[in-house]
Simulated assay, not measured.
Amino acid sequence: MATYEQIRSDVQAKHGVYVQNCWIAHVKELNGLTPRPATNRRSLDARVKSCPAEVRPIIEASMRRFDMI
């Protein structure tokens, strides 16, 4: 499974878009994967920053390249 850094680098190289770790975690949750626990997360039930709708397909494409989904 790819790391968050690998996904971020892949998206940056292919699309020129910087993605945040919280966006990657949100997309992982939406696709049924378990995200890595964040040490600074206040609540496991609440999400402070959701992934923007226009960025989600880009992150999912990167996850497909890494055979995650």
Results as ranks from 00 to 15, higher is better:
M1R: 05
A2H: 07
A2K: 10
A2P: 09
T3H: 11
T3A: 06
Y4W: 06
Y4A: 01
Y4M: 08
Y4T: 05
Q6W: 03
R8S: 11
R8M: 10
S9G: 04
Q12G: 00
K14Y: 04
V17E: 12
V17A: 07
V17F: 08
Y18H: 14
C22E: 08
I24E: 02
I24M: 07
I24A: 08
A25H: 10
A25Y: 00
A25P: 12
V27W: 01
K28T: 06
E29I: 09
E29R: 02
N31R: 01
G32L: 07
L33I: 15
L33K: 01
T34G: 13
P35V: 01
P35E: 15
P35Q: 08
P37F: 01
P37M: 00
P37D: 09
A38R: 12
T39Y: 14
T39F: 15
S43Y: 15
L44Q: 03
D45M: 05
D45A: 10
A46R: 12
R47L: 04
R47H: 05
V48F: 07
S50P: 08
C51L: 00
C51M: 06
C51W: 05
A53V: 07
E54Q: 09
E54A: 07
E54Y: 03
V55A: 01
I58R: 00
I59F: 02
E60G: 15
E60A: 01
E60H: 11
A61W: 08
A61L: 06
S62P: 02
S62H: 09
S62K: 01
S62I: 02
S62Q: 02
F66T: 02
D67L: 15
D67S: 07
I69Q: 03
